[in-house]
């Protein structure tokens, strides 16, 4: 089977500071990959290299494009990469303000990607937006309200709807539950799990919350100081960690 994404030896430094180094893995369609590690371990750097937000110093990020099969997104033209970013890919930011247009209504936020790929029927765009608000458990009566009037959890759910509306083939998420209250986190996690199951999403989720990967990720990569120190099936890694750092990570969670 062709992987959806094949990452080969990605490295990124900031001056002398290592962002991430020698990261390689394959992601297959329908798979959810979790990336965990302490603050500063290089999770966001890696994710941004994969999603085309950062240019890695070395390595390849091969994506299974619809037209031409596996293509290196690092070396493809910027227009082609931005086209992927607004069609086949989605990116959910930790801070919904980075992923939403705060001055645009909820419906407009969800509809933007549709319009970006050519939707020109207002009634249909609105119907789709309402359907997606429902799917992320936002009352349709709020469709014309701006996200600035939404709670943090609602904003995050709106950001997810805005990203999923065009049926992306690969979803990148950076700490999607970070910055939310614990009870709000739990609800968002349930919602995400439902969406992942129902839509068969392929996703890469960065988090330092092991509960998130336990619930969502099929496979797991553990990062430390920019390097992947352990990877494998989520349950295996969490229940029987091999690397000393992973053991520490798992045990510190168990103590909570």
């Amino acid at each position: 089977m062709t992987p959806l994404l094949s990452v080969k030896n990605i490295a990124k430094t900031y001056g002398r500071q290592i962002g991430c180094a020698d990261v390689s893995f394959d992601l297959f369609p329908g798979e959810v990959m979790g990336i965990v590690g302490e603050s500063g371990s290089g999770k966001s750097t890696l994710l941004n290299c994969l999603a085309g937000h950062l240019a890695p110093d070395r390595g390849e990020v091969l994506f299974d494009t619809r037209a031409e099969g596996l293509r290196d997104t690092v070396t493809m033209s910027e227009p082609a990469r931005r086209m992927l970013a607004r069609t086949d890919w989605a990116f959910v930011h930790q801070n919904p303000r980075d992923g939403l247009r705060m001055g645009v209504s909820a419906g407009g936020n969800v509809g933007e990607r549709l319009m970006a790929v050519g939707a020109r029927h207002y009634g249909e765009i609105r119907e789709t937006a309402l359907d997606w608000l429902d799917q992320v458990e936002i009352d349709g009566a709020r469709v014309d309200d701006r996200p600035s009037t939404f709670s943090g959890g609602m904003q995050q759910r709106l950001q997810i709807a805005r990203n999923l509306v065009t049926g992306p083939r690969l979803v990148f998420m950076d700490e999607p539950t970070g910055g939310l209250d614990v009870s709000v986190q739990a609800r968002l996690l349930d919602l995400l799990r439902g969406l992942v199951r129902r839509l068969g999403l392929s996703a890469i989720i960065v988090t330092h919350d092991l509960a998130v990967v336990r619930l969502l990720a099929d496979r797991l990569m553990v990062m430390k100081s920019g390097h992947v120190v352990e990877s494998g099936l989520t349950d295996q890694v969490l229940d029987d960690p091999q690397h000393a750092y992973t053991q520490l990570l798992v045990s510190s969670v168990l103590q909570v």
């Binding site: 931005r82 319009m115 970006a116």
Partner: peptide
């Protein structure tokens, strides 16, 4: 990338 221009018109109608 002109999707945004239609967002403006969408907002108008909404």
């Amino acid at each position: 990338e002109y999707g945004l221009m239609h967002v403006k018109l969408y907002e108008d109608i909404a």
